[in-house]
């Protein structure tokens, strides 16, 4: 049942992923790198040695870099943001400052 999403992902990706700005280009480039790194894309750079300096040119290294260096800090920032937000809201309720949902107009 979960796999039915594939049809909608294909249609949405085809329609939405159009390079109309620099930000759009960066988003598409990173998405392609991660997609290739997670699937058949490894074949493209298979001829490059897996060890040494040249290994940095392999698609899976690029994919790991995008996930580990670009995406990871953003995810961590979201986690911190959510945590701090929950803490702040907890304090507001605890101290009786937050009245909107329960007592507000």
């Amino acid at each position: 049942m979960f796999s039915l999403i594939a049809f909608f992902i294909l249609s949405a990706a085809y329609r939405a992923f159009r390079i109309r700005s620099i930000e759009g280009s960066i988003l598409m480039a990173s998405a392609l790198i991660v997609l290739l790194g997670l699937s058949f894309g490894v074949i493209i750079t298979q001829w490059i040695p897996a060890t040494g300096l040249a290994a940095n040119l392999r698609i899976e290294t690029w994919s790991s870099w995008v996930l580990g260096v670009v995406s990871l800090p953003a995810l961590r920032a979201i986690d911190f943001g959510v945590g701090l937000g929950a803490l702040a809201m907890g304090l507001r309720i605890w101290l009786g400052i937050e009245r909107g949902a329960l007592f507000g107009e």
Binding site: A6, I9, L10, A13, Y14, R15, F17, R18, I19, M28, L32, L35, L36, L38, S39, F40
Partner: peptide, 13 residues
């Protein structure tokens, strides 16, 4: 499926 997604995005662009 991934390959088709990449090809369709490329065709569109």
């Amino acid at each position: 499926a991934f390959a088709l997604v990449i090809v369709s995005i490329t065709i569109g662009n």
